[in-house]
């Protein structure tokens, strides 16, 4: 019973939003041309789904964002571990990395386009770039924040540098690495959407932008809802993976 009540409490705000979205345009409180009722948008989305356009756009977006995201993980985690492990290297590089992190990837899209053209490479590289910074910086700080006493304790048991890294530094850094990955997960969709709005022939960003240009407003909202669901799903997935890897944490 209490589980039902909790579920009700947790979904109340969302349900209210959905009800308002359906009701307010129908009551004429908001202009139904610019904000069509929810059911109209869902119907449009359903049609796009049946027509095969929506799956095509989702596929295009997912391939790009997962490729960029995956490459960022493969690249940034080892690099971050390496940089964090060598303290002098970290001391030198971190200020520079902070500059890059704080330079909005979006501001650099024209540069990417200039160098790599407007194809898939650009979009994947763009996602890769944006996702790398949070993973890299969190990994570095995770490695550097390892409790010195744990290192001392392992060393007292005659553990050499390689095993120390493998058995102490690495597991201790896992939570920080996951924080980075989760941030990157959000970026992966965010920046890709932008790239697709600027120059693409497929993808959810393109769908949303194109629908707006050609005044297919319900299609636009269908695209937005899809993005929102994808984002939620992605985050949920990352959180559950994170839980699996850090059952030992108190929180």
């Amino acid at each position: 019973m209490s589980a039902v009540r909790r579920a009700a409490a947790r979904s109340a705000a969302v349900l209210l939003l959905l009800a308002a979205w359906e009701g307010l345009p129908r009551l004429g409180v908001v202009d139904p041309v610019f904000v069509p009722p929810l059911s109209v948008n869902l119907q449009a989305g359903y049609d796009l789904l049946l027509g095969g356009q929506l799956p095509e756009h989702v596929r295009a977006s997912l391939v790009r964002s997962l490729s960029g995201f995956g490459l960022a993980i493969l690249l940034a985690i080892p690099l971050g571990l390496l940089i964090g492990w060598y303290r002098p290297v970290a001391d030198t590089l971190v200020p520079l990395l902070e500059v890059f992190r704080n330079t909005s990837a979006v501001a650099l899209l024209p540069v990417f386009t200039l160098i790599l053209g407007i194809g898939e490479t650009t979009k994947i590289t763009f996602v890769l770039y944006a996702c790398s910074w949070p993973i890299l910086l969190n990994t570095i700080s995770g490695v550097r924040a390892v409790e010195p006493l744990l290192v001392k304790s392992a060393r007292s048991m005659g553990v050499g540098p390689v095993r120390l890294f493998q058995k102490v530094i690495l597991p201790a850094a896992v939570p920080a690495v996951f924080t980075g990955i989760r941030l990157a997960g959000a970026y992966a969709i965010l920046v890709l959407l932008f790239a697709e709005m600027v120059g693409a022939k497929a993808g959810l960003g393109y769908l949303i932008q194109d629908a707006q240009f050609s005044f297919r407003i319900p299609d636009m909202y269908a695209g937005i809802i899809t993005i929102s669901l994808l984002g939620l799903l992605f985050n949920l997935l990352l959180v559950s993976v994170e839980r699996r890897f850090s059952t030992w944490r108190t929180t």
Binding site: L149, L150, K152, S153, A154, R155, S156, M157, G158, K167, V168, P171, A172, V174, S246, W248, R249
Partner: peptide, 28 residues
């Protein structure tokens, strides 16, 4: 240098938080 002929016990326990009690004991 350090070696397994000597064992150190610290005031702040220095247990590895990601390892169970058993796995901590297995570390050495």
């Amino acid at each position: 240098g350090p070696g397994l002929d000597r064992g150190v016990v610290f005031q702040q326990y220095a247990l590895f938080p990601w390892r169970s009690a058993r796995a901590n004991v297995e570390f050495g």
